[in-house]
């Protein structure tokens, strides 16, 4: 199982703050998981943005990051704190 969270503009665009995916073994990397979500079409195209950021287990990472059962991942737009 992989827990996925969406934040800020993405959360609003998707109308969803998170979900659980039960087929963790299908995703070798975070990008595999993203491609799976993009294939849903429609509003999910927001995850194709160039400046998308992502995290695995609450640490920033690249889309090439490998995934494992039990991971918690997050997708979000460029951060704007400070």
């Amino acid at each position: 199982m992989i827990r996925v969270q969406y934040f800020a503009r993405y959360r609003e665009a998707l109308g969803l703050d998170g979900e659980q995916l039960n087929n963790a073994e299908d995703f070798a990397t975070l990008d595999d998981l993203r491609q799976h979500l993009l294939a849903r079409g429609g509003v999910w195209a927001v995850l194709a943005e160039q400046n998308l950021m992502c995290a695995r287990n609450q640490e920033l990472c690249s889309l090439a990051e490998p995934l494992a059962e039990g991971d918690e991942v997050a997708f979000f737009p460029t951060v704007t704190g400070g």
Binding site: A74, V79, G81
Partner: peptide, 14 residues
Amino acid sequence: VMDYLKTRAPFWKK
């Protein structure tokens, strides 16, 4: 710290 915070800490302003 400020430069890293602005680009790496997960905050979003609306």
